[in-house]
Amino acid sequence: MQRRTLLRGVGGAALATAVPQAVRADEVVEVDLRLVIAVDVSRSIDEDEARLQRQGYLEALADRRVLDAMTGGPLRRIAIAYVEWAGTHYQRTVIDWSLIDSAPAAADFAGKLDASPFTSQSWTAVGAALAYAATKFDEPLFRSARKVIDVSGDGKTNNGPPAELVRDELVKRGIVINGLPILSDRPNFGRPPEADLDVYYEEKVIGGPGAFMVVAKGFEDFGRAIRNKMTREIS
C-alpha cells in the first residue's frame, strides 16, 4: 500500500523509474495489452510452493511461445505489472508497469522478479486483490484496448469483499479477469483441501469477454499451467 500511495503522490517523476528508459514520463505509450499479474502470497503457500510459483513465471518469461505472443500483436509490445496479495490488509506492487517488446525486455523483467524477496501474509482476499489490481489501469503510462488481470491462488476468499461482486464491477469497466486456481491435496491449516477451487474460480472469479482459466494440479504443475495461460491470454 505504501508503494501505491507513493506513486499517486509524486506523479510522473516516480513513475519514470518503473519503466524502460525509452519511455518518457510524460509519454503515453500504446500497447496491444496491459496485463496485471496478481499472485497469491497468503500463508497457505509455504516457501517451497512460493518458489515453484515464482519459478513458473520466470520460465514463462523466457518461453519462446510466450515471447512470440508478447511481440506478435499489431504494435508488437505489451505492458505488464506484477502484484502480490493476501488479505485485505496486504496488496503490493512488486514490479510496476514495464514495457515488454523484446526478449531482453522480458529478461530484465524476470531479473527484477527473481531478485524480489518473498513475503507471506495472512488471509485470502481475492476480491480485494482484484480491486487493487484494477487500480493499476488508472495509471497513465500505457494505453490499450485490452485490459487483463491474471489472478492465481490456492484458496477461496475468506476475508474482504466477495470476489464475484468485485469481478462484476470490473467487467463493467472493460477489464477481463482470467484465473489460475492451484489445486492441492494437502490440508490448509487443518481444514480439508479445497478440491472444488476450480469451480469457485469458474463461478466467482473469472469474467469478461473470452475469460478463461487454466488449472494447476499442484504447485509442481504451476510452471506448465502459467506458460500455457500466458500464451493464450496474450495472443
Rank of each mutant, 00 (worst) to 15 (best):
L183N: 12
D154K: 00
A131C: 06
K172S: 14
K156P: 00
N158E: 00
D150V: 11
D154T: 00
L170S: 09
R173D: 14
F137D: 09
P192I: 13
L165M: 13
K172G: 12
T157W: 02
G190V: 10
L180K: 00
K147S: 12
V151H: 02
V176D: 10
P192F: 14
F189P: 04
P161Y: 05
V148M: 14
I182M: 11
I149A: 09
A163C: 08
I177A: 07
L165V: 15
I175F: 04
E169R: 15
R143E: 13
T135F: 00
P192W: 13
R191G: 06
F137T: 09
P162L: 06
D138M: 05
D138A: 13
I177T: 06
A134E: 06
E169G: 13
L165Q: 15
I175R: 02
N158D: 09
K156D: 01
A133H: 04
I177L: 07
N158M: 04
K147V: 04
D168Y: 10
N159I: 00
L180Q: 12
K156C: 02
F189I: 02
V148C: 01
T157M: 03
L180P: 10
L183P: 14
V171M: 12
V166K: 02
L170K: 06
N188G: 03
K136P: 00
N159E: 15
N188P: 05
P181L: 01
L165F: 09
R146M: 06
L141Q: 06
S184N: 12
